[in-house]
Simulated assay, not measured.
Amino acid sequence: MARTKEFDPDAVLQQAMELFWEKGYEATSMADLVERLGIARASVYATFGGKRELYLKAYDRYVENGIDIIGLLSQPGPALPAVRALVERYAEEAAQDTRHRGCLVVNTAVELAPHDRTLARRVEANWDMIETALASALTRARAQDELGADKDPRALARFLLTMMQGLRVIGKSSDDPVRLRDAAAQALSVLS
């Protein structure tokens, strides 16, 4: 007869995500996981697989719980205010990141994607989704005469995506919120 789990796998996954987000993959040992999660090493393996499998699940959890970018950018009405709000939100979240955790997607891109094809594909999928949502909103903005006809929505989307991810990197290591807010304001000026 199978034993009933004495822990909530969903809560444990959330705690694992937080730990990986704080320390990174390589700096998080199995001992760190066991201590933080409050479950035995065997339970980690039996429930989630190894450390890598747990990281993949934690990464997916982070992405699923992130900003509803598609919902934000696809609302009816003017599109440009939604794009501006998204960029400003990225800047504010980075400016308020007092724990200097950054973004788990960006952290994964820097730490693991160069040598882990599975995670590289997941990072690319996330960035493709953001870029596509931005390009769609900017195309709509151009069609609604909010954005000049000479502006290339796809190129602007790529620029904003790159800048927004850069905000996350700077926010991870800087205590200067003005730097982040000024950068976002300058990036948004290209939409005028």
Rank of each mutant, 00 (worst) to 15 (best):
M1V: 15
M1A: 15
R3G: 14
R3Q: 15
F7K: 10
D8R: 12
Q15G: 04
M17V: 07
E18P: 01
F20Y: 11
W21D: 11
K23P: 04
K23S: 13
Y25R: 06
Y25K: 08
T28L: 08
S29R: 08
A31P: 04
L33H: 03
V34F: 05
V34T: 13
R36K: 14
L37F: 09
G38Y: 06
I39C: 05
T47C: 11
T47S: 12
F48G: 00
R52G: 05
R52D: 09
R52A: 10
E53T: 08
E53V: 07
L54E: 02
Y55I: 02
Y55C: 05
L56W: 04
Y62P: 01
Y62G: 01
Y62A: 11
E64D: 15
I69M: 09
G71P: 07
S74K: 09
S74A: 14
Q75R: 14
A79N: 03
L80I: 07
P81N: 10
V83S: 02
R84K: 13
V87H: 02
Y90V: 11
A94K: 02
A95D: 04
D97L: 08
L104F: 06
L104V: 06
N107H: 10
A109S: 09
A109D: 02
E111G: 03
A113D: 03
A113Q: 00
A113I: 02
H115L: 07
R117P: 03
T118D: 12
L119D: 01
A120K: 09
R121V: 01
V123I: 14
A125Y: 07
N126M: 10
D128G: 01
M129L: 15
T132L: 09
A133D: 06
A135D: 03
A137M: 06
L138I: 03
A141P: 01
Q144C: 05
L147N: 04
G148P: 09
D150M: 07
D150G: 07
D150V: 10
K151H: 13
K151Y: 07
P153I: 00
A155S: 09
A155T: 13
M164R: 14
Q165M: 13
Q165Y: 08
G166L: 06
G166P: 06
S173G: 15
S174E: 01
D175A: 11
V178L: 10
V178R: 09
R179V: 11
R181S: 04
D182M: 10
A184D: 01
A184L: 01
A185H: 09
A187T: 06
A187Q: 01
L188E: 04
V190T: 14
